[in-house]
């Protein structure tokens, strides 16, 4: 089983995130980290590997990240959690890419990772915590021409009647809970409901130092630099404006049960009741 897990290095969502002058996200001036939602993908990738057996010669989880120099932090953290190998695609020409460009680079990198012995599952988080579009898994599946089973809260492997391995997920949708499945190879995305992500152990941290990390450029992937980056993006940001901070309104203490009455008076004054 050859699993590739895609992770993104993002600005810390609890920090003061902002835009650069060219209206791209500031990825240098704000502390970054492995996107929290991608930790769930790493966790599920590791669990899939553990379920099929732990012999790492046959079963590999490779973490893949496309991002600036410091995105190596996200790769390292994933290795510390237990991934076997890392791939960091870094190239100045990638900066400012939109989802179209990013998915192109990811697809080429997945193909290269699987060039020798193929790949079975590409695992992704449900969305990044910065752009939060949630479209890259679907775009990746489209580019790799494989099925996508997305937004899973439970993931399991099973064999179908024809002896093929299928990946089955449970998706807790708005109107129904669905079981969705597809035959490998597949792109899978998981939500934050899929199970808490493990913390790197001391042993994991030490072991990560010896794990192989490949650094690839666009030319390593055979991607034309003209096809990616800000200039090649299919969308343009016209302007961005910080939302004026909300000014705190009236806060009352619920002394002697006065709070409920004050609340109802407020709602009535705003014509909500």
């Amino acid at each position: 089983m050859n699993i590739v897990v895609c992770v993104k290095y993002v600005p810390d969502s609890t920090a003061d995130r902002h835009f650069e002058e060219d209206l791209t996200v500031d990825r240098v001036g704000v502390d970054g980290l492995l996107s929290e939602l991608d930790e769930y993908a790493v966790e599920q990738a590791l669990q899939l590997k553990e379920k099929v057996g732990d012999d790492s010669a046959d079963h590999m989880v490779t973490v893949l990240s496309v991002g600036p120099e410091r995105a190596s932090d996200a790769v390292r953290k994933s290795l510390q959690m237990g991934c076997d190998a890392g791939v960091h695609v870094v190239d100045a020409a990638i900066a400012g890419s939109d989802a179209v460009g990013t998915s192109l680079v990811l697809a080429k990198a997945v193909a290269k990772i699987g060039a020798e012995s193929g790949w079975d599952v590409v695992m992704c988080g449900m969305a990044s915590t910065d752009g939060s579009m949630g479209v890259v898994p679907a775009m990746l599946a489209e580019r790799l021409d494989v099925p996508a089973v997305t937004l899973g809260s439970e993931v399991e492997l099973s064999a179908d009647s024809g002896g093929n391995t299928t990946l089955r997920i449970r998706r807790d949708g708005d109107t129904a809970t669905e079981t969705i499945e597809a035959t490998l190879p597949v792109v899978c995305s998981v939500t934050d409901q899929s199970g808490e992500a493990r913390y790197p152990s001391f042993k994991g941290i030490m072991a990560a130092k010896k794990k192989p990390v490949a650094t690839w450029s666009l030319s390593d992937l055979g991607v034309d630099a003209e096809l990616v980056g800000l200039a090649a993006a299919y969308t343009v940001v016209e302007d961005s404006q910080a939302r004026p901070p909300r000014t705190a309104g009236q806060v009352v203490a619920d002394d002697d049960g006065a709070g409920a009455h004050a609340l109802v008076e407020f709602l009535a004054s705003k014509k909500f009741i």
Binding site: G249, Q250, V251, V252, A253, D254, A260, H261, L263
Partner: peptide, 19 residues
């Protein structure tokens, strides 16, 4: 409370039923 137009500091299990 930094965001609110109106806030009540109190136990929701008391405030809400009374409201």
């Amino acid at each position: 409370f930094e965001l609110v137009d109106f806030g009540v500091v109190g136990d929701l299990q008391k405030v809400l039923p009374a409201a």
